[in-house]
Amino acid sequence: MAKRVFFSFHYQDVIDFRANVVRNHWVSKPDRASAGFFDASIWESAKKTGDIALKRLINGAIKNTSNTCVLIGSDTFNRKWVSYEIMKSMQVGNHIFGVHINGIKGKDGKTKTKGSNPLYFLGYSFSDDGTKINLHDYINGKWIKYPDLDGYSVNKVDEKYRNKIYRLSEDYPVYDWNGDDGYKNFSKWTK
Rank of each mutant, 00 (worst) to 15 (best):
K3P: 01
S66A: 15
I104V: 14
N94V: 14
R4V: 03
R18F: 09
Y11C: 12
G115P: 04
R162W: 06
N64H: 13
K132H: 03
A40G: 15
K112R: 05
V70Y: 11
T111L: 06
S169G: 04
G106Q: 00
D129P: 00
Y152S: 09
K63D: 15
W26K: 10
D148F: 08
I86K: 04
K191N: 09
N178W: 06
D181P: 02
G60I: 10
T76N: 11
W143G: 03
S45D: 15
S45E: 12
N140V: 01
K188H: 12
S83K: 11
R56F: 07
V157A: 11
R18G: 11
N24R: 06
G109P: 02
T76S: 09
D176C: 14
Y166A: 06
T65A: 07
Y166I: 03
Y84G: 02
V14Y: 04
H136T: 07
N178G: 07
V99P: 02
T68A: 12
T190L: 13
V5Q: 05
V154F: 02
F6H: 12
I101S: 01
T190A: 12
D75I: 13
S116W: 00
V27F: 08
G103L: 09
N134P: 06
S34F: 04
K47P: 00
I144G: 05
G130N: 04
L71I: 08
G130L: 11
S66K: 14
D31F: 05
T131W: 00
N117A: 01
F6Y: 14
V154G: 03
L57W: 11
P173V: 11
K48E: 15
V70T: 14
S187I: 06
G106I: 04
F37K: 14
K88L: 13
D128I: 09
T131D: 03
A40E: 10
D128F: 15
T49K: 15
V27P: 00
I52P: 00
Y183H: 02
W189D: 08
V70H: 03
P147H: 10
F38R: 06
D16W: 02
L57R: 15
A40W: 10
C69Y: 00
K114A: 12
N117S: 04
Y172P: 13
G98F: 02
K48L: 07
S41V: 10
G93Q: 02
K164M: 14
K29S: 13
H100W: 07
I42M: 01
F7R: 01
F17G: 03
Y152I: 05
Y183A: 01
S34Y: 00
N178I: 15
N155H: 06
D129M: 02
Y11G: 10
V174Q: 10
W177C: 15
G98Q: 07
S83P: 05
S8E: 00
G179M: 08
G50V: 03
I58M: 10
F37H: 05
G73L: 08
D158K: 07
Y172H: 12
N20T: 06
F126D: 08
L149Y: 00
S83T: 02
D108C: 09
D51R: 07
I96F: 10
I96A: 13
D51S: 09
S66Y: 04
D176W: 11
K191P: 13
D129N: 14
D128S: 12
I144Q: 09
S89M: 06
K80E: 14
T65C: 15
Y161G: 10
L119N: 08
K55Y: 05
M90K: 14
N163H: 13
D129Y: 04
G106W: 04
I133P: 01
A19C: 05
W143R: 01
